[in-house]
Design a protein around this nucleic acid. Structure first.
Length: 853
RNA sequence: GCCUGGGUGGCGGAAUGGCAGACGCAACGGACUUAAAAUCCGUUGACCGCAAGGUCGUGUGGGUUCGACUCCCAUCCCAGGCACCA
């Protein structure tokens, strides 16, 4: 029996054992309850695994191993989100086919992930770039198309000339591409769009039943951005044109003093007077030239042009000027608004700038105004803006509408009713959510199973001819025209109808990276099925995902897109649940330790030396301040899991990542901390391998420690409180290191508790204890409350809330006896000397508080 | 500006309204060793005190309570997200 904790030998041995025995193969169908735990699958980048990846993977792995021991049939798979721009850019630079780069990266990732000893069922591995996978991504697109949810639209898109591709809004940050930081401009192009907006309401509503962090749900709600209000028709004075505006504040109609159309609004030129034509055209051109970013960038200063037209306010017949301005967006609502400067800050700014009257129609609620520091007199005089609550004033007409004196909420309803009765308005709902721009001008993505026929019609590749594979190419440069490199694959592009001989050209766009990740959790269920997307019986058995763990950066997009596709698949009867992921947990980011000098200048870690005085700049000898920062190449604070594993072993790596703090928290990496858990594993190893183990009865103290440990580790593992579970195991080892002989039951129980956390060591110690089978399916220990009970407890006696004495008292003693014992104690008597005891608060088993005076 | 989280020792963190700082790191002292590493034992929130002991202490200011890191109000700071969405 080895006395050294030789982690590299142990880890290698057990990884081989698990692999050759297929220990973690998930059985389809079983009498055990199922449990599906999903990790967000990684994009296999060239940089290899980052310490952030194993954080979530370790957490789910611990839970999976625990659940197996609790008798669950666990599905825990892994795969690769492998389409994407970096491999394509590398191909452009070097001519290496993206599939070669991708496979190489995946091999690295797989090796690294396997070296951490995760209990994945590797037989279910998926790869979004494999034909047998993307065949079904294309199949889903066909279902979307057939359901009328995919359409082509000419839309101004985010065109990045440097990358030669269109980017999604979310891939553009501050007017630059998220990847590479290149400038992005707006360019109209024909694009595939998916009608996610049709599902807005359900995506919003069904959030309610999900066990997700409240913050993530809120982010999705905000992204969907539901608002309710009214559409109101305004006639244009002297023209046979009417314009519909959208407002969430129909109650403020009496305060509308002008109207604004977005510069792109279809009716702008219809209503513009000859005198204003030049100014309006100039403004429209100016607006068109600007990117979305510039529009919002310059949001402090309002701009606009007067059309010369006047609209008639339907509630009181007043004529109000019609302007165009880029603060009104064409894509939201009706692209036109009624402006109420007295009660909307944007309208107020605009009115101030262009000298438009401000009419106050809400008298601010006095209390609200005071707490917001708003002067009511200014609001009433139209000199200040009030967007809060209050009572309506100046809001009545002689056509039966009078909302004076009402609060905002009632007046909205009443106004909508009045408008609807006259057929000039109606209550409506709007969403900020836009349709999903689904094309990319890239090579390395799923090709659309679409042919554009000569006669302008669109034909889909028949389902039995899928997959439509990517053509082999050796030049991956963008075509330059805005089309993807596929536009250069001439042979591949050509299509001739075998029956009619009609010619066609294949779609050159490919799908965005989100496509493959929208449904991978479904393919794990039946990854090798070549006849259908998956066997429905297996889907019914495994779905929904019980726990989904990943980074918060996917809070909105990936999770919203995946929910959307899932709902579509639900509607066409392909899946049996309306939501895919029942419980979601976001692991917090792991930061690297970084250093800055007194001027706040960052010093890369390779120029920092640790001295007794603290971290020092090796060049200037200046003492530096330590602080946690996002890991980055420039700060040289990136930690490579391979290095940690070779020095301390993967069990230590796993344990440290879990011991750092709560899973959801952002935490700084500290390699010294790995040594702490490494020492704990060494002590655990020594405890089992070097103690004299005896099959003997335990003392009450031993039983209490053992059962308290079972209880805490079980409960904390269940609730993902891994850091506190580990500290309890440390307490156990500290306690049992003191005993002369180690009771066999305590040894075996401890090994089982440790195993999900440090699985290699767990198996090794289990073997040392004389077992020949894996402990992966050993029943999880159960604690007995009776061993936790003690005969005597220490009761704290407080006087006025301050601790004065600690007295041992029998458990279960009644309050009167507790008080009596307390009042007999010398320290207590001293503390209350000369005072009267006015009250005694007794908390059985805990404390007594004496109130004196 | 709005929406989420979060502020506890030198550091990571722990605490069903009931002894703040479990567990770990670092530091210091000691044992073992020719020495070092490894290991083991002990000390370690701050301040006052020789000591017994006392005072203060969970971002800040109030409040509720016999009792507040925990609940309420206000406020500051940090991180993430959204941002002219009418």
């Amino acid at each position: 029996m080895s006395t050294e904790y030789d982690f590299s030998a142990i880890e290698k041995q057990w990884q081989n054992y698990w692999e050759s025995n297929k220990t973690f193969k998930a059985e389809d169908f079983s009498s055990k309850p199922k449990y599906y735990v999903l990790d967000m699958f990684p994009y296999p980048s060239g940089a290899g695994l980052h310490v952030g990846h194993p954080e979530g993977y370790t957490a789910t792995d611990i839970l999976c191993r625990y659940k197996r021991m609790r008798g669950f049939n666990v599905l825990h798979p892994m795969g690769w989100d492998a389409f994407g721009l970096p491999a394509e850019q590398y191909a452009v630079e070097t001519g290496t086919h993206p599939s070669i780069t991708t496979d190489k990266n995946i091999d690295t990732f797989r090796r690294q992930i396997k070296s951490l000893g995760f209990s994945y069922d590797w037989d279910r591995e998926v790869n979004t770039t494999h034909q047998k996978y993307y065949k079904w991504t294309q199949w889903i697109f066909i279902q979307l198309y057939n359901k009328g949810l995919a359409y082509i639209d000419e839309v101004p898109v985010n065109w990045c000339p440097a990358l030669g591709t269109v980017l999604a809004n979310e891939e553009v940050i501050d007017g630059k591409s998220e990847r590479g930081n290149h400038p992005v401009i707006r360019k109209p192009m024909k694009q595939w769009m998916l009608k996610i907006t049709e599902y807005a309401e359900r995506l919003l509503l069904d959030l309610e039943e999900l066990n997700w962090p409240e913050g993530i749900k809120e982010m999705q709600r905000n992204w969907i951005g539901k608002s309710s209000g009214a559409e109101v028709d305004f006639k244009i004075d002297g023209k046979d044109v009417s314009i519909t505006v959208y407002t969430t504040r129909p109650d403020t109609l009496f305060g509308a003093t002008y109207m604004v159309l977005s510069p792109e609004h279809a009716k702008v030129m219809d209503i513009t007077t000859p005198a204003q034509r030049a100014a309006v055209e100039a403004y429209r051109e100016h607006a068109a030239r600007m990117s979305d970013f510039e529009r919002t960038e310059l949001n402090t200063e309002k701009t606009g042009a007067f059309t010369g037209a006047y609209a008639v306010n339907p509630v009181d017949g007043r004529k109000i000027p019609v302007w165009i301005s880029d603060y009104v967006l064409a894509s939201y609502g009706t692209g036109a608004i009624m402006a109420v400067p007295a009660h909307d800050t944007r309208d107020f700014e605009f009115a101030q700038k262009f000298d438009i009257p401000v009419i106050c129609i809400i008298e601010p609620d006095a209390k609200d105004a005071a707490s917001d520091g708003v002067n009511t007199a200014d609001v009433l005089a139209g000199k200040a803006c009030w967007t809060g609550n209050g009572k309506m004033i100046n809001s009545a007409n002689d056509a039966g509408l009078n909302i004076n004196g009402l609060e905002v909420k009632e007046s909205k309803a009443k106004t909508i009713e009045w408008l609807a009765a006259r057929g000039i308005g109606k209550g409506t709902t709007n969403y900020k959510l836009r349709d999903w721009l689904f094309s990319r001008q890239r090579y390395w993505g799923e090709p659309f199973p679409v042919i554009h026929m000569e006669d302008g019609s669109i034909r889909l590749v028949p389902e039995n001819e899928l997959p439509l594979t990517l053509p082999e190419m050796d030049d991956f440069k963008p075509s330059g025209s805005g089309e993807s490199p596929l536009a250069k694959a001439e042979k591949w592009l050509e299509y001739v109808d075998p029956v009619t001989g009609m010619k066609g050209r294949r779609e050159t766009n490919t799908m965005p990276q989100w496509a493959g990740s929208c449904w991978y959790y479904l393919r794990y269920i039946d990854p090798d099925n070549s006849d259908r997307i998956f066997d429905p019986a297996k889907e019914k058995y495994w779905m929904p995902v019980d726990l989904y763990v990943g980074g918060a950066e996917h809070a909105v997009l990936h999770l919203l897109y995946a929910r959307f596709w899932h709902k579509v698949l639900f509607d066409i009867g392909v899946v049996s649940t309306k939501e895919p992921f029942m419980r979601l947990v976001n692991q917090g980011m792991i930061l690297g330790m970084s250093y800055k000098n007194a001027h706040g200048i960052l010093v890369p870690n390779n120029l920092v030396e640790h001295t007794p005085e603290g971290p020092v700049d090796t060049r200037t000898r200046e003492v530096l301040e330590e602080f946690p920062a996002k890991m980055s190449k420039s700060l040289k604070n990136v930690v490579n899991p391979d290095d940690v594993i070779s020095e301390y072993g993967s069990d230590s790596m796993r344990l440290y990542e879990m011991f750092m703090g709560p899973l959801e928290a952002v935490k700084p990496w500290n390699t010294k901390g790995v040594e702490g858990v490494y020492r704990f594993l060494k002590r655990s190893h020594r405890l089992i391998t070097e103690s004299t183990i005896e099959d003997r009865a335990m003392t009450p103290e031993e039983l209490r420690t053992l059962h308290a440990t079972i209880k805490k580790v079980s409960e904390d593992t269940e609730s993902l409180g891994f850091n506190t579970a580990i500290s309890q195991m440390m307490v156990f080892v500290n306690e049992f290191s003191k005993v002369a002989t180690l009771p066999l039951e305590a040894a075996e129980t401890f090994v089982k508790l440790l195993a999900p956390y440090a699985p290699h060591l767990g198996e090794e110690l289990w073997e040392c204890l004389g077992h020949s089978q894996t402990l992966a399916y050993e029943p999880w220990p159960v604690f007995d409350e009776k061993y936790l009970a003690v005969a005597e407890v220490e009761i704290l006696v407080q006087v006025l809330g301050k601790p004065k004495a600690r007295i041992m008292m029998p458990t279960g003693i009644d309050e009167a006896a507790m008080e009596k014992m307390a009042l007999e104690n010398a320290d207590v008597l001293k503390a209350i000397e000369g005072k009267t005891v006015r009250k005694m608060i007794c908390v059985p088993g805990r404390l007594i508080n004496l109130v004196i005076g």
